[in-house]
Design a protein around this nucleic acid. Structure first.
Lengths: 313, 313
DNA sequence: TACGTCCATGTAGCGACTCTACACCGTAGC
DNA sequence: GCTACGGTGTAGAGTCGCTACATGGACGTA
């Protein structure tokens, strides 16, 4: 019945082991184990059971953990009301981002927050191969995530608050001297036979390249695979291949050595979201940051409107 | 941010004074005062202000108290899930009733609960002049309440869970030898000139007598006023006047010395409810008792169906 | 089979927290 | 004025949850 203990159970459900919970909550495993033991005694039924050298939650444990989330939401709602009343979002907000998203949105967002004043935003980037964005919400207030298609968004929407920020077109990146660089719009067939600089298996852009292959009727020839777009850009700028890159962020140091072209006939875009655990989403400070992110995303889209013609069907 | 402190604030909002909160929560006023002080320091803004020799909540305090109720609901929801899982409603349930309601429903309800087994129901009756039924929900899990008209139910439905149990007709009680006792149905005009045994000012039945006066076009002559229906019944049985009494409960020791007659043209009935504070309503034990109350109320209505003809409009 | 590692869990003791007991102060009513 | 009442301070005691350290079982490897 004690809320702090319930919260521990919920952490256990999210993280899977007592040691991990202890690390996340800055306690010793012994303390966590003791508290869970008390909770189990109060509950009157087993909440965990041994599994190998670790433990797993029982059905009852999982159910209780879920209701613990509701309690957390109610408590954070009270905290938010609190902040609202003194009109002063307090505390620190942590944010995890994928590299290109952070590059595109975070400087502007931080400037917007500085203009408001009062709260501090701690950002850090996470390796983009981690396609398990929702898991990061246990450690960060806000997680920036992207997917190739909204259909691939198999995130549990009742356990994760999803805020759509923007849709960014994916363009074909060519070196300036490339024969295709003079065309206004590219068709998938144009790209047959090109050498591609792709992404590692499982990265979001992979799907876009597959779609192009399907539309062209021939598999694309991916000769390199990089996770960091700056490496990709360096290769393209040096004439070593073509690539598919997010339209608003591509370029950077190679702005004058890369040409971006719209692709016709294939829906190539990525969708960028903010993911937040519902209880954290209640905090006024968190909501303020999300609002700033949305405003910044809108501004980026507006600033790039001229390069973003409507796609033919 | 501590839940126990929030709960204290909520008690303060409900009860209005620190001393009362201390009494209700089995603490000393000093302890309550200290905890509220800490809460206020955490909040960073004043939650209470002095008023005479007592205190009142500020707007912020009231708002926080309201969100504390949401937290309580979430916590009790978790507790209920708990009970659900071990399939065993635990703990004790307290119930406050008005006398005739308790007489009519509680014996059967307790029998039903005994058949299920496992939980204990503590009942006590409260003076019926207390028309402030909702306030009792702070001290009892379930409060049985009645009103003459549902319109008079000005209970805040978002702060109180209201469960309708039954509608009980109000009949005219006559001594057996009374001239009107031979009529099948009575009209308001029949009652002009009768001596009435009424209820104290403010009791629910008062409205029914007023409605009859309006329908008859003449004020009724109330010569006695009793809160306890047994006294009223004794007077009616002894031929000292007529009265309006709840159909299913009237009689008792005077069953053979009282005649009950339906009244035509006036909607005379009382509505019986169970009132529960939303957080308490989450408990499985409480819901089990409410279910038993509803079943018993249905049974009482069914058993009396023959005396309950539909009212002409 | 023996060993090291990992994870969960006991035990002792320390520190923080929240309660009680009691004293004090301001307000209201006789 | 006195008395009653409600709220607030202070000192001390009990409880609770944490750490530090030791124990024991499960898995992987030599």
């Amino acid at each position: 019945m004690d809320v702090r203990r319930l919260e521990l159970l919920r952490e256990l459900a999210e993280r899977g082991s007592i040691t991990e919970v202890a690390r996340a909550t800055h306690r010793t495993p012994s303390a966590v184990s003791q508290q869970l033991r008390v909770l189990e005694r109060e509950a009157g039924l087993p909440l965990t059971e041994k599994a190998g050298r670790g433990i797993v939650l029982t059905d009852a444990g999982r159910a209780l953990a879920r209701s613990a989330a509701d309690v957390a939401v109610a408590i954070e709602h009270a905290n938010a009301l609190w902040d609202e009343f003194r009109n002063d979002p307090t505390g620190e907000v942590s944010l995890a981002t994928f590299p290109t998203g952070g590059q595109m949105l975070l400087p502007g967002t931080v400037k917007r927050l500085d203009a408001i004043g009062g709260l501090t935003l701690h950002c850090s980037d996470r390796d983009p191969e981690s396609d398990d964005f929702p898991a990061l919400t246990a450690d960060f207030d806000i997680v920036l995530a992207h997917t190739a298609s909204p259909a691939a968004m198999n995130w549990p929407s009742n356990e994760i608050t999803v805020v759509k920020l923007m849709t960014e077109p994916l363009d074909i990146a060519l070196p300036p001297g490339h024969p295709l660089a003079s065309k206004e719009l590219l068709d998938p067939e144009d790209l047959i036979g090109e050498r591609w600089i792709g992404v590692p298996w499982g990265y979001p852009f992979e799907k876009a390249i597959q779609d192009i292959s399907t539309a062209a009727g021939t598999p694309m020839n991916v000769v390199q695979r990089f996770g960091d777009t700056r490496v990709t850009e360096a290769f393209v700028a040096n004439g070593l291949g073509i690539a598919i890159l997010p339209c608003y962020t591509a370029g950077g140091a190679y702005r004058s050595e890369i040409v971006l072209k719209n692709l016709r006939g294939v829906v190539s875009e990525r969708h960028i979201f903010a993911l937040i655990r519902p209880d954290r989403a209640e905090r006024l400070a968190v909501r303020t940051v999300v609002d700033a992110l949305r405003a910044e995303a809108d501004a980026v889209v507006a600033a790039n409107a001229h390069r973003n013609p409507p796609y033919p069907a």
